[in-house]
Every structure is written in C-alpha cells, then in structure tokens.
Nucleic acid binder design. Structure first.
Length: 296
DNA sequence: AACACGGGGTG
DNA sequence: CACCCAGTGTT
C-alpha cells in the first residue's frame, strides 16, 4: 500500500470518526487505566450493548483497583453474572491484585500489562493505547476485518494472516493520534464494515477499498468438516454456567444438592465440572461443601 | 493449530 | 440452527 494512499485513508477515516464515532461510550471519556481495563476485559467476546450497563454498575461498586482487590472473589463473580466466561471476572480481580502488588496500580506499559492474568496481546495494547495514549497496534476483530478488507483485499481476517494484518495495521497508524485512529477503525468495523452484510455504499473508504474493488470476493466457506455442534443446553459450558448460577444464589452446598438442580443429562458429570471450576478459581471446596471462591 | 470457555442477539 | 461478538490460556 502506497504511503500517499495510507495517509488519505487515515484522514478520511478521521473525518468520518469525528462525525459518526461512538464518542459517548463511558470507557472512552476516561483515561483511568483501571476503568479502561475493566471495559476491555468485559468486551472480550462480548458486544458493546451488553457491556454498557454492566460497566457503569461495576465502576460504581468498585471505582478503583484497590476496591476491587479488597472484594471477595465470590462477590465479584456475582456482579459478573450473565456476562459469560466467568474466568474473566476471576482474572480481572487477580490482575488488579497483582498489579497493585507489582506496579502499585494498573500500568499503561504494554509489557507490564501482558504479565497480568487475562490480559493478552489485544487487551494489553488496548489499555496502553486508550488509557496511556501509547502508539501500539491493538488488533481486535473489528480492526482486523477493516484492515483485511480495505488494505489487503481479503473478505475476513484469517488466522494465518495474523502477522500480515498486524504489519498492515501498524503501517496504517498515524504518527500522532493513534488512540483516535484505532477507535475510529474499530467503530467503522462495528457499524459499517460489518462481518455480515457490510454497508459498503455508505463507507467512507469505499473508493480506496481493495476488497470492494475486487468485487467483494466471498470468504472461503467455513470448513464444515466437523459434526454438527451439540445443542448448547447439553454442553459442559452450559452446565458450568448453571452451577455458578446455583452457587451465586445459594451456597455453600454439597455436591449432591448441586447435581440435583442440574438437568438430568449433566448430573453424573457434576463432580467433574466442579473440579474444573475449582481449577479456574471460580469455586472452592471446604468441609464437604462447595461455594464461590473466597465465599466459604 | 485447535479447543475450551458463556450467553444473548440476529437472520 | 448458524454465526457473531473490543480474546485468552492451554494443549
């Protein structure tokens, strides 16, 4: 991609963002690393619309890393209820505790962030950029798709192209204003350059998009080689979620009374699920009873 | 590279 | 029912 085109794409995206960006999102009006970290962890695999109300409640209850660190893990899991991937809640609190101990607070240096549990390449870069205004590539699914299409002419961001995508995204970064640039690319991906039924007619980048120029070639069909996935209700994931919900409402409980509240098909595996949940730090076992972590 | 890990919204 | 969503950790 020629330098001149990249700089035009940057400016066009910036103009679009100033008018159409989601500037009112509460985690965008703060530069507090803790608040930004909370939002980024909540947003892992979870839509903005679902996170928005929960983020506000969370920050009201635990406005600082210190307050979250002092809470009981069981309390944290209850507050998380319904957001899914309960490990994220456990890791978020662990991250707060570790960061306070090691760094005296939530850092904005990518390398330090990366040492925290539940903080991977994306989240570390996002906190560094959005809270610390650091110039680093935060490649989430939206930005990856925008880069894949506009710059590389690919329909989707494919795993094998991850490194290429990162390089292209980096080349696209402005010298200054990285934060706004990446938020803009993210918003474009979320509202216009969508995974399915993208709105190319109204896209500000349509005249420069290599994917559109190539006639929007379809992505390769998903490798449908696998057997049809089991109904969600019969997955271990569903059962684990049920167990956490049961213990959030009423604990401590012996394994037998937990199992009794599960759907028939999951009862015999209840013990296995509990052990796995304990391994994830979500539940604990004391005196023949199970409860949410630190609740016993 | 492939899986496990939640749950709700959408077509 | 299938796919999608501001991913991470383990094998």
């Amino acid at each position: 991609m020629a330098t001149v085109e990249l700089s035009r794409l940057r400016r066009t995206l910036g103009r679009w963002y100033r008018v159409n960006g989601r500037h009112d999102l509460p985690w965008r009006t703060t530069r507090d690393p803790y608040a930004v970290l909370v939002s980024e962890v909540m947003l892992q695999q979870t839509q903005v619309s679902r996170v928005h109300p929960r983020y506000e409640t969370w920050l009201k209850r635990w406005p600082t890393a210190e307050s979250l660190a002092e809470a009981t893990t069981g309390t944290v899991i209850r507050e998380w209820a319904g957001l899914g991937y309960n490990r994220r809640a456990v890791n978020l609190q662990r991250a707060a505790r570790e960061a306070l101990e090691k760094f005296g607070g939530i850092p904005t240096e990518e390398a330090k962030l990366l040492t925290l549990p539940g903080v991977g390449p994306y989240t570390a870069a996002a906190v560094a950029c959005f809270a610390g205004d650091k110039r680093t590539v935060a490649l989430d699914t939206n930005i990856a798709r925008v880069v894949a299409r506009t710059l590389l002419g690919e329909a989707t961001a494919r795993v094998p192209h991850k490194q290429k995508l990162k390089e292209a995204a980096k080349a696209w970064l402005p010298k200054r204003g990285t934060r706004a640039h990446q938020l803009a690319a993210m918003d474009l991906g979320a509202t216009v350059c969508k995974a399915s039924s993208p709105a190319c007619e109204i896209c500000p980048l349509k005249s420069d998009c290599t994917w559109l120029a190539a006639g929007q070639p379809e992505a390769d069909p998903t490798p449908n080689g696998k057997v049809t996935a089991a109904p969600f209700k019969s997955t271990a994931r569903f059962a684990r979620g049920q167990i956490v919900a049961i213990l959030a409402k009423d604990s401590p409980l012996p394994a037998s009374s937990i199992a009794a509240q599960l759907p028939e098909e999951h009862q015999e595996n209840c013990g296995r699920y509990l052990e796995a949940l304990a391994g994830d730090g979500i539940v604990t076992f004391r005196k023949e009873h199970w409860g949410l972590a630190e609740d016993l």
